[in-house]
């Protein structure tokens, strides 16, 4: 059986959802897996919300667009409203809590609440909230290795930001710790 993970990453423009997805796709390539990264580039994006569909597979990827996801990484309320119902039963929903007024209600999926913005602010770099989300995701769904993610960061971040790679790696570690502390029994 071919192992495939279909992921939606969604939030406001500027929260780094597209680059989070790219880090996942690059990591997959480093591990010689197949991958596709499909961004929203339309009026939706211009209106402030952005998302990308990332598929990582051991085999050939057919449709790069799907309507049901194994995992959702959600960074704002409109995205949660739109994508909560699209997670496959038994799937995984990770959400950044700071803007969420109406939390998810489904009982047939695994839900993880992550204080990513709060933790990123403690690092004085709110831009790494996306990497905290990535760390949390990877702690539960270890579809790519951490060392591949580190290599992927070199590819995704422009050279002028390479000095921030250690900070990004630290943020990923924080995301993993949040899961370990809060959801020990779940995973």
């Amino acid at each position: 059986m071919i192992k495939t993970e279909e992921i939606i990453v969604a939030g406001f423009g500027g929260q780094g959802v597209l680059s989070l997805g790219q880090v996942l796709s690059y990591s997959a390539i480093i591990e010689d897996k197949e991958t596709s990264w499909m961004p929203s580039y339309g009026p939706e994006m211009r209106g402030g919300t952005a998302n990308c569909v990332v598929i990582i597979s051991d085999g050939r990827i057919s449709s790069p667009l799907v309507s049901r996801y194994d995992s959702a990484i959600i960074l704002n309320q409109p995205s949660l409203d739109k994508f909560e119902s699209c997670v496959k039963p038994g799937g995984f929903l990770f959400y950044e809590e700071s803007t969420i007024v109406n939390p998810p209600t489904r009982e047939d999926i695994h839900i993880f609440k992550i204080a990513a913005t709060e933790e990123a602010n403690k690092l004085n770099k709110k831009q790494v909230a996306n990497m905290i989300m990535l760390g949390a995701f990877l702690e539960v769904r270890s579809i790519v290795k951490l060392e591949s993610v580190s290599k992927a960061l070199l590819k995704v971040l422009p050279e002028r930001h390479h000095h921030l790679i250690p900070l990004n790696e630290k943020a990923i570690g924080i995301g993993k710790e949040i899961i370990q502390k809060q959801y020990q029994e779940t995973i």
Partner: peptide
């Protein structure tokens, strides 16, 4: 189409 132009793949 626009999706093939905008999407990333290996």
């Amino acid at each position: 189409d626009g999706a093939l132009g905008q999407m990333m793949e290996k």
